[in-house]
């Protein structure tokens, strides 16, 4: 019984993670504006990765591997939002079409 329950939880997390990742891939490829693209890109690195890693953790059970998987999730949850923030900041500073920027003056 507990095995079936575990497999159900595992399948749920895996399918949810797959759904998020596919959405992210579609969004990154289909959106036109860079800020819009940033949103699915950050989503896949945080939510999608967490769901997939949780699926792997449930599949592994209580093992040392589980701790490592959770550590990976923690590392990505620290770093990925920072990356998204920096990218957004760079877009804000250089996209002269949509924002008021100083980029024009600095063109070589």
């Amino acid at each position: 019984m507990i095995d079936i329950l575990r497999q159900v939880v595992f399948a749920f997390f895996l399918l949810a993670g797959l759904f998020i990742q596919i959405t992210a891939v579609l969004g990154v490829n289909r959106f036109r504006f860079s800020m819009n693209r940033l949103h699915p890109a950050g989503m896949s690195d945080t939510l999608g990765l967490m769901l997939m890693a949780l699926a792997a953790a449930v599949y592994a059970g209580f093992e040392p591997v589980t701790l490592k998987i959770l550590l990976i999730v923690a590392l990505f949850w620290i770093t990925s939002p920072v990356c998204s923030h920096l990218l957004g900041r760079l877009i804000r500073e250089t996209d002269e079409k949509h924002f008021e920027t100083e980029a024009k003056e600095w063109k070589p």
């Binding site: 620290i78 770093t79 920072v82 923030h85 920096l86 900041r89 760079l90 500073e93 250089t94 100083e102 600095w106 070589p108």
Partner: peptide, 21 residues
């Protein structure tokens, strides 16, 4: 000067993450 202009500079979020990592 031109290539330093678009550097992050004093980005508090990046600095906090970097201090930890």
């Amino acid at each position: 000067e031109m290539e330093r202009h678009f550097e992050p500079g004093d980005d508090v979020i990046l600095q906090s993450a970097a201090r930890l990592l």
